[in-house]
Design a protein around this nucleic acid. Structure first.
Lengths: 136, 136
DNA sequence: CATATAGCTTACGTAAAGGTCAAGTATAAA
DNA sequence: TTTATACTTGACCTTTACGTAAGCTATATG
């Protein structure tokens, strides 16, 4: 039986390599996004490869506009049955499908917003050209 | 010399017709977006046609995703010379252009997110079919 | 006159995503 | 051993756009 040799990093180093602050990492743990990490004797948090992947995933989703609250919703279903990947996957597909719809909806909303802004912009631009706009 | 007969409304009625709360209107005054309105004897605020147009304009910009802070920037230019709509528009165009870019950026990000989710979804779907995925 | 309704000011509360400070502990280097 | 970092928890601070409550005034109506 061989001993697993995990490469462990502390919170400061992890934060630095990811370009975030330690507060952010602790905050994600605080709200349950990261799950309690292993501690050293003195209480110092340590992170292994899986922890780091998870954190990177969170940052990726955040970068793309998913709120921490939405991630918490996702995390519920992820964490409840972490054991059997086979039984969770159908549910996971369902969740992902839901998210695809949500994203599609957001894209549609933004596209509509964009059109409105552009239209409004051109009306204002007309004013600068001396055109008389209609009162709305 | 004829006396101007302005139709004046009070805050409650104005709020109701615009679908906002009185708090919102007072707040806009509080932060200088609306300028102090005329008061009746008892101190009750009254709004004339220009005030109402201005408030509608604010709501329109808000609807387009412009923050109250950004509007305050606009208001600076707006208040100095209230007559000339011409002096405010270039600044407004600038802000609107910035917003169009922002929205475009968000749309691009969401599109990218969508692709990622779809990819992830299909990898998971593969697992259900018995395929062995690569570790990423 | 009493009550109802609308208005007034002051000021604290809220959510999101952390920032910042305080006071204490642990570990490594000089 | 002293000093310098890095870490810990706890708790209050920040911003945005108002919500909400308290306590008071003014106007309309029965």
């Amino acid at each position: 039986m061989e001993i697993k040799q995990e490469k462990l990093v502390q919170i400061g180093e992890l934060a630095k390599t990811l370009g975030i602050t330690t507060r952010t990492i602790r905050y994600y743990e605080e709200i349950g996004l990261m799950g309690p990490s292993e501690r050293l004797g003195g209480g110092t948090r340590t992170y292994n490869r899986d922890d780091i992947l998870r954190l990177k995933f969170i940052l990726k989703l955040k970068e793309l506009g998913i709120s921490l609250k939405e991630m918490q919703e996702l995390a519920k279903n992820f964490d409840i049955n972490q054991q059997s990947f086979g039984t969770i996957t159908p549910k996971l597909l369902e969740i992902l499908d839901g998210h695809i719809s949500k994203v599609d909806q957001k894209i549609a909303n933004l596209a509509s917003l964009r059109k409105e802004i552009v239209d409004y912009r051109s009306r204002i631009s007309d004013i600068l050209q001396g055109h008389v706009p209609e009162v709305s």
